[in-house]
Simulated assay, not measured.
Amino acid sequence: MIFKIVAVSYMASLIANTVLLLGGVSLIMWIKREPMTNFIGKHKTLLSCIMGDALIILAYMQLWVNQNAATTLVGFHWTYFNVMLVATFNLLIYTNNRWQMLYTLVGTAIWPLTGKVTVPLVLGTLGLLVVTYFIYCVTDRIMHSGLLYTVLFIIYSAIWLAMTNDMFGHQSRPAWGRQIAALIVLNLVVFGYYQMLKSQLDRMDTFRHQAQVDELTNAHTFAMFNEKLADAFTQFQQDGKLYAVFTLDIDHFKRVNDTYGHLAGNKVLTAVAHQIEHVVESGQYAGQVYRTGGEEFTVILHDIREDDQEAETMLRTVQAAVGTLMFTFDGQQLQVTISLGGTHVYTEDTNYLQVYKRADQYLYDSKRHGRDAVTLRGRTLAR
């Protein structure tokens, strides 16, 4: 009968602790990788530490209650001690934060004070402090080495178990077997679950990057452009901050592909996108470059002044930067030109697409005027 009670209690505790730890891992990973609000995104490291430490404190409180309320310390009720140990070790690694490291050091130094202070406890504490700091220093290596992770967990756990056994008395070999087996299972489950989640989230990040960034030119995609243009229009309606939209198209680009091949065309696209990006980054206004068509790029500049001279300077700078590019294909030199159209948002605009449609119309006005031209707010500028 006693065996059945111990077995059922052991399995129930193991399952409950596994669920508790996996829930904690899921919550921390969500905070770190999927912030749904600006507050969470700004404070995700702090929140991860708080959530993890709250789990450790909860386990310690339950451990303390069990130790002081139980009449028979079968296995010392170390099921919650296992939770504390696994959570502390993995939180130190996965948060990779100095404040978490300092918190762990402080908690490690205070723990022996809960029992009778002895020389072995003092030596064990000093050893734990050294191991804890070492883990923090080599966190990046641990994340990429299962062997190093395993070795450090064994050392960390062995010191903790020896210290706790010395503080609360010795237990039987079967109890030790249950204790160590549960500890191994819990940490393997946490390690495996974390790796699985990380792999899935990394794939999601890859898909998100592919959806947001054009692989060839490294400019943002049309989907991102559509989203950011809508955001800019909403922001304009709320606070009146102006934004500008510039569209540009490489002149006679089909001729480049037909004459020199698509690889040559790809090289031209990449170089042009790089030049536009360089001009935008060097300008006085925050902006992004988007690939909105085969050879068409669009720029959004935020929080601008309504100044035609500034806008003209920006457009002509982009035009001149692209004009400096020189390509050599099949022994022949090639220089490309671009046509541009630019405008800014107006109070009369009723939806975000009107700004883009206007800029796109001005781009085609430049093409109708012989290409290699700039049309700004409906007026094609002199060359």
Rank of each mutant, 00 (worst) to 15 (best):
I2D: 13
V8C: 07
A12N: 14
V19L: 15
L27V: 15
P35S: 01
F39K: 04
K42C: 02
H43A: 03
H43W: 15
L47T: 01
I50W: 03
M51E: 03
L55P: 05
I57P: 03
A59H: 04
M61T: 12
T71F: 14
F76W: 14
T79Y: 14
F81K: 08
N90W: 10
Y94L: 15
Y94G: 03
M101C: 08
L102Y: 14
T104H: 06
T108N: 04
T108F: 05
A109Y: 05
T118C: 05
V122Y: 09
L123I: 13
G124T: 01
L128R: 10
V130H: 04
V131K: 08
Y133D: 12
D140L: 08
T150C: 15
V151H: 00
M167E: 00
M167W: 07
P174H: 06
W176I: 12
R178C: 12
A181D: 00
L183G: 01
V190E: 03
F191S: 01
Y194N: 14
Q195V: 07
M196I: 09
S199I: 08
A211M: 03
Q212C: 10
Q212W: 04
D214R: 01
L216E: 02
T217Q: 02
H220M: 10
T221N: 01
L229M: 15
L229W: 11
L229P: 10
Q235P: 04
D239C: 10
Y243H: 03
Y243M: 01
V245E: 08
T247D: 07
K254Q: 06
V256T: 03
N257P: 13
D258F: 00
N266E: 09
V268P: 13
A271D: 01
V272K: 02
V280L: 04
V280H: 08
S282Y: 07
S282T: 14
G283M: 03
A286W: 03
V289Y: 07
R291G: 02
T292N: 04
F297G: 02
A311L: 05
E312T: 12
R316N: 13
A320N: 11
V322S: 05
L325A: 02
D330H: 14
D330M: 09
L334M: 11
L334I: 05
D349F: 15
D349S: 10
T350D: 07
L353F: 12
D365S: 10
R368E: 11
R368L: 09
H369N: 15
G370K: 11
V374G: 08
L376I: 12
